[in-house]
Design a protein around this nucleic acid. Sequence first.
DNA 1: TCGACTATATGACACGGTGTTACTTATTAC
DNA 2: GTAATAAGTAACACCGTGTCATATAGTCGA
Lengths: 203, 203
Amino acid sequence: MPKQTFFNLPEEKKATLIRAARKEFSRVPLNDALIANIVKEAGVSRGSFYQYFEDKDDLYFYLLDKNTEDRWAVFVSELKKHDGDLFAAMTGMFYSTLSLINEKDTRDFYSNMFLNMNYKIEKTFKHTVKLEEFNKQMSNVLPLIQIEDLHAANNEELFHMLQITMTIMIQALMLKFAQELSDEEVAKHFELQLKLVKRGFIK
Amino acid sequence: MPKQTFFNLPEEKKATLIRAARKEFSRVPLNDALIANIVKEAGVSRGSFYQYFEDKDDLYFYLLDKNTEDRWAVFVSELKKHDGDLFAAMTGMFYSTLSLINEKDTRDFYSNMFLNMNYKIEKTFKHTVKLEEFNKQMSNVLPLIQIEDLHAANNEELFHMLQITMTIMIQALMLKFAQELSDEEVAKHFELQLKLVKRGFIK
DNA sequence: TCGACTATATGACACGGTGTTACTTATTAC
DNA sequence: GTAATAAGTAACACCGTGTCATATAGTCGA
């Protein structure tokens, strides 16, 4: 998390910093990003940077979290839209993410993210966690899911189904960037894999 | 790929280099590994390193490839052992990998690998690839799989089933290191997820 | 046995990025 | 208005990278 000093900054300065960081993290993945470029672009001194953030990672994960925290909201809204159909909701989330990715000023950022997605990044992106925390987090979502349609004996199995479908989605998006697939190709890939697991999730 | 110069080296010197590299990549993940440490440990000059390898990544992926190329062989042998049962074979491969991971002198290397697994590493580890290449690579394996048991209409669906089960395995192993799970916990996780997708893969 | 060519080995070096620190400037509070 | 606290800065020490000029060893035809 950024330091308090950062949050105390006037909105405009914060925005400038964030814009500069996004630009750098769009240019290259986290490991290759240079603090030097960010401070230059934002027009602040190097010393200031370290008064706002612990290091590069601190800033990156703050950004990532900001940019993905609404993924969960999308999922919930899709779930409502499709009367609790888990697969329809995940599909909706997939296409929503796909179009987000295609926006000119987000594409490179996501490209670098997906191609260098490790456990920590995946965890942040999934915005989800251990089984113990799952029930708490999901308390307002669980009732939305049409569990009668699912071959899930309990919450634990439901949790794993969510994990698997989420992973299928992420893997598909990774593939898009890795092999520069078209939306159609990656959608076909995603829908097929979803269909395959679905056959088993459905009673 | 390492340069020819490296392959021309006497076996013993190659082994020393590899041992030194493994040590460094066990200490820290790829990004934090220092060439300085490797050359120091191996007792060669910095200049020599660059005559053997393009850079750090070159050496790392060579090592990784060497260490994972027998994963495929394990899979094939498991497939034979279980009369073509895809799930039994994958489970066998899982436990085989698990015990490999638990060996004292491989654990840290794999820990760093799994926790920093990005697309390129995953691809190398999976030792598998695009659909087009799949049929060629699998030509000697496909006949082994009891496809009658599977709910797969064609090779493409079979390919995706393999991808999904492989991913489930990898994710489980990642989780082991990330949350420091016991073998029992991670096995439970893996087996449950496999069970869930299995319900659908089986006619 | 020589010399010439080729392969291998080396450490010094220029370059560039990081994170810190001593110091300056701005803001707040009384 | 001054003291205390917060924010901003540039210079610096440190360290790792990749390269290069040079040295050494090995090979082979004459």
